[in-house]
């Protein structure tokens, strides 16, 4: 029942939500909201490690100031936690578990070059504050993050490539290591779902995410049991019909090189339900 509770609450909350979630689940993507449009996404995410599992609800509120400039706020509700949470980054809802983040997205390049086709580039900057004093034994401070993503959208395929860096400020003598990351997403709309609006619109994605967390500093000393690199790959799916959207998928590590003694990641799962007003 404890595990069902977040899913039930997710279903309930999604009735009240409207969303911008029409891209990949884990990776960066370029779309921004239309001018004056508001959005809300709610997701349940699980992170499975060799030492246990973390489970949380994530929420994302967005507003389109212009068609190319969007602001967003992301928060979360932890349900199950692990002693050494995985350092993650990626899509707008993929900030570190435990951070409240405000984001600005600026789609500074857009070329609508044909019917159903778009090539565009978006810059993302964000700032986050932690909701916990310590994370994995490290006092955690505020953070700044910047990312860049470019790619194209069409009626048949999608491709986005992007990357960014998150810098955590010192908190006392502690500091979380900076986090470089990159994502590559390929999307495909099967022929069955290329029928015209308002027919159901389903897409399949192959997403990959590379993360390079730096070493943490604890009491002024670099922690040997922190930092490393990780490459995750997995399938995700996005379905849209009427006012409803659902997306979800899994990433599994195909490469992990973690310094010292750290729990290895087994899988990352996410399910997002959306509702448009």
């Amino acid at each position: 029942m404890k595990r069902l509770l977040p899913i039930l609450s997710l279903l309930f909350v999604s009735h009240l939500a409207l969303s911008s979630g029409h891209g990949p689940v884990f990776g960066l993507a370029t779309p921004t909201l239309g001018k004056g449009h508001a959005s809300f996404d709610v997701a349940i995410m699980s992170n499975r490690q060799s030492g246990g599992s973390a489970l949380m609800l994530k929420y994302l509120w967005g507003y389109g100031i212009t068609e190319n400039l969007q602001i967003a706020l992301s928060t979360h509700s932890p349900i199950e936690t692990v002693p050494l949470p995985t350092r993650t980054r990626g899509s707008l809802m993929m900030q570190a578990n435990g951070d409240i983040e405000g984001l600005v997205l600026w789609r500074f390049h857009r070329d609508d070059y044909d019917i159903g086709n778009r090539f565009e580039t978006t810059a993302i900057v964000s700032g986050s504050i932690p909701t916990e004093k310590k994370r994995g034994g490290v006092a955690v401070g505020n953070a700044l993050h910047a990312a860049l993503v470019t790619g194209y959208a069409s009626r048949v395929t999608y491709l986005w490539i992007g990357g960014g860096y998150q810098h955590y400020f010192k908190k006392g003598n502690d500091q979380l290591g900076g986090l470089w990351y990159g994502s590559l997403v390929f999307g495909w709309r099967p022929p069955l779902f290329r029928e015209d609006y308002p027919k159901p619109d389903w897409r399949l994605f192959i997403e990959s995410l590379a993360e390079f967390p730096g070493r943490n500093t604890v009491n002024g000393i670099k922690d040997p049991n922190s930092g490393g690199s990780r490459l995750l790959v997995g399938p995700t799916v996005l379905g849209l019909y009427g006012d409803w959207g659902i997306s979800g998928g899994v990433l599994v590590p195909i490469h992990q090189k973690l310094n010292g003694n750290q729990p290895s990641e087994k899988a990352r799962l996410m399910l997002t339900l959306t509702y448009w007003i």
């Binding site: 911008s20 029409h22 239309g34 449009h37 857009r110 609508d112 070059y113 044909d114 019917i115 159903g116 086709n117 778009r118 959208a153 069409s154 009626r155 609006y197 308002p198 159901p200 619109d201 849209l240 019909y241 959207g245 448009w276």
Partner: peptide
């Protein structure tokens, strides 16, 4: 009206509503 760049159902939905 011919529209370039509109690829997905939420895109169409947003234009329709506007």
């Amino acid at each position: 009206q011919t529209i370039y760049g509109m690829d997905c159902a939420p895109c169409a939905r947003g234009v329709e509503a506007s």
